[in-house]
Nucleic acid binder design. Structure first.
Length: 343
DNA sequence: AAACCCGACAACCGCTGTTGC
DNA sequence: AGCAACAGCGGTTGTCGGGTT
């Protein structure tokens, strides 16, 4: 039996979050960092349960989240990972660092499931076979790509092994890790650091509020007005996110994110051709070593608070990059002929 | 113009697992 | 060991906007 719901108290608000609530939550997290969610409603005055606050942060306000506009590469990844792993949305999301499990789940349920069903139906019909040159057929051909489940599993085992190796290496590094937490950081210093990391959210909310005020000449602080404006505001948040990403990345191609070409990453993970290890991953290393990363880039790289302990030593994204990097085989002198028992 | 339908997605619910006391 | 608090997960529901009748 599960625990009783935490939100059945009187006076706890449910439903869509208002911009004011978002700001209160973001401000709090900026100051105190994510965690200790129980204290959030008390300390912020939010009439929300702690769980609702955590989910709102995790799925919506957390920086580094990209919303909407799934790329073809992301679709491919989701489809193949879903085929391999089933509805393990969190596991799938771990391969798409900018996407939340909730987002992927929704996208699967609303888009991909139907798309695949349609494709299955069409390929079973004569009509469907007649039009195999469409974009959708590209998708299904990737879906039914000829690598076997055994190969997938072996490949994933290799990745797990490499991640383990990388973790061991990182923990035993003689040299300083790339991101070194300040010695005995005071609370204030920690808050200062986190402020940088959460800046994108703050900016986004500032933008949305700006748009909200502009669109609402007779602006009122009543919650009803706020609620009715919320959808427009939400769109502003989304626009702000898109804007931030398009300006912080070198190209406009959304498939390139975090400096990692998802297509390459995908091919590395699921294909069997060798990925050129001199690609974007080494770009990341160079950039971070030279300290010429923008705050936005750094935020995107290092903001995964789901793995706070790892990221405080070595950014978790490095492990993800490592997993995607076939060159790691050579670096470690490893081959994939290890036993699964090694893990 | 109103009613209805439907898709998209944010949010909630119920449960399990983990951690600390 | 037992309990409570919390985090995480996957399924489901509620709400809203847009399209159609």
């Amino acid at each position: 039996m599960g625990r009783p719901p935490c939100c059945d108290k009187m006076g706890v608000k449910k439903g869509p979050w208002t911009p004011e609530e978002d700001i209160m939550l973001v401000s709090y997290v900026q100051e105190h960092g994510p965690g200790n969610w129980r204290a959030v409603p008390t300390n912020t005055g939010l009439r929300r349960c702690s769980k609702s606050c955590r989910l709102r942060w995790t799925n919506y306000l957390r920086p580094g989240i990209r919303r909407g506009d799934f790329t073809a590469d992301e679709e491919k990844m989701i489809i193949q990972l879903q085929d391999l792993l089933g509805n393990k949305w969190a596991a799938i999301a771990s391969y798409l660092p900018e996407r939340t499990d909730n987002d992927i789940k929704n996208y699967w349920n609303t888009h991909l499931k139907k798309k695949l069903k349609k494709l299955e139906d069409s390929t079973n019909s004569d009509e469907g076979r007649a039009c195999l040159a469409t974009e959708e057929n590209t998708l299904i051909s990737s879906y039914s790509h000829s690598i076997s489940r055994g190969q997938w599993e072996r490949r994933l085992q290799t990745d797990i092994h490499l991640a383990k190796q990388a973790l061991n290496d990182a923990l035993s590094l003689d040299q300083k890790p790339m991101i070194i937490p300040p010695p005995n950081p005071s609370h204030h210093e920690a808050a200062s650091t986190s402020s940088q990391l959460y800046a994108s959210s703050t900016e986004n909310i500032a933008k949305l509020l700006k748009g909200w005020m502009k669109n609402s000449p007779q602006m009122s602080c009543s919650s009803t007005t706020v609620t009715t404006q919320h959808s427009a505001v939400q769109k502003n948040i989304q626009d702000a996110h898109v804007t931030d990403y398009s300006t912080s990345s070198e190209g406009t191609d959304q498939s390139k994110s975090n400096g990692i070409d998802l297509s390459q990453a995908f091919d590395s993970l699921f294909g069997f051709e060798t990925l050129d290890s001199s690609s974007n991953i080494s770009d990341f290393s160079t950039k971070s070593h030279n300290n010429n990363m923008s705050p936005e880039e750094a935020s995107t790289f290092f903001n995964n608070e789901r793995k706070p302990d790892l990221s405080s030593l070595v950014p978790f994204s490095m492990f993800e990059n490592w997993l995607f990097d076939d060159g790691a085989h050579n670096k470690l002198g490893l081959t994939s002929n290890f036993s699964f028992d090694d893990i």
